[in-house]
Computed example of a mutant assay.
Amino acid sequence: MWVVIFEALGAGLLLVLIVWWTMFSGRRNGERPEDDTSGRDDTRP
C-alpha cells in the first residue's frame, strides 16, 4: 500500500516539476518585443 502512495507522490512531484520547468525556464527578460516588420497587415477593415 505504501508503495502505491509513494509512487503517486513521485508522479505528482514529477508533474509539478515539468509544469514549473515549462513555465519558468524561458528567456531571462521574457518574450522578445514584437517588431513592426512581422508582415501582418492590421490596417484592413
Results as ranks from 00 to 15, higher is better:
residue 1 M to N: 09
residue 1 M to S: 12
residue 2 W to S: 08
residue 4 V to K: 07
residue 7 E to K: 09
residue 8 A to K: 00
residue 8 A to V: 00
residue 8 A to G: 01
residue 8 A to R: 01
residue 8 A to M: 02
residue 10 G to K: 07
residue 11 A to Y: 00
residue 11 A to V: 00
residue 12 G to Q: 04
residue 12 G to E: 03
residue 12 G to W: 03
residue 12 G to A: 08
residue 12 G to D: 03
residue 13 L to R: 02
residue 14 L to G: 03
residue 15 L to S: 04
residue 16 V to S: 05
residue 17 L to R: 07
residue 17 L to P: 02
residue 18 I to Y: 05
residue 18 I to A: 07
residue 18 I to C: 05
residue 18 I to H: 06
residue 18 I to M: 06
residue 20 W to G: 04
residue 20 W to I: 07
residue 20 W to V: 10
residue 21 W to S: 09
residue 21 W to H: 12
residue 21 W to G: 06
residue 21 W to K: 14
residue 22 T to V: 13
residue 23 M to K: 14
residue 23 M to R: 15
residue 24 F to I: 04
residue 24 F to E: 11
residue 24 F to L: 12
residue 24 F to H: 11
residue 25 S to N: 15
residue 25 S to Y: 14
residue 25 S to A: 14
residue 26 G to Y: 04
residue 26 G to I: 06
residue 27 R to Q: 12
residue 27 R to K: 14
residue 28 R to V: 13
residue 29 N to G: 09
residue 29 N to K: 13
residue 29 N to P: 02
residue 29 N to V: 08
residue 29 N to M: 11
residue 30 G to S: 08
residue 30 G to H: 07
residue 31 E to S: 12
residue 32 R to W: 11
residue 34 E to D: 13
residue 34 E to I: 15
residue 34 E to W: 10
residue 35 D to L: 12
residue 35 D to F: 06
residue 36 D to N: 13
residue 36 D to A: 15
residue 36 D to L: 15
residue 37 T to R: 15
residue 39 G to T: 01
residue 39 G to Q: 03
residue 39 G to W: 01
residue 39 G to D: 01
residue 40 R to H: 13
residue 40 R to E: 12
residue 41 D to K: 01
residue 41 D to A: 04
residue 42 D to L: 15
residue 43 T to G: 02
residue 43 T to Y: 03
residue 43 T to M: 03
residue 44 R to I: 09
residue 44 R to T: 08
residue 44 R to V: 11
residue 44 R to N: 10
residue 45 P to D: 03
residue 45 P to C: 00
residue 45 P to T: 00
residue 45 P to L: 00
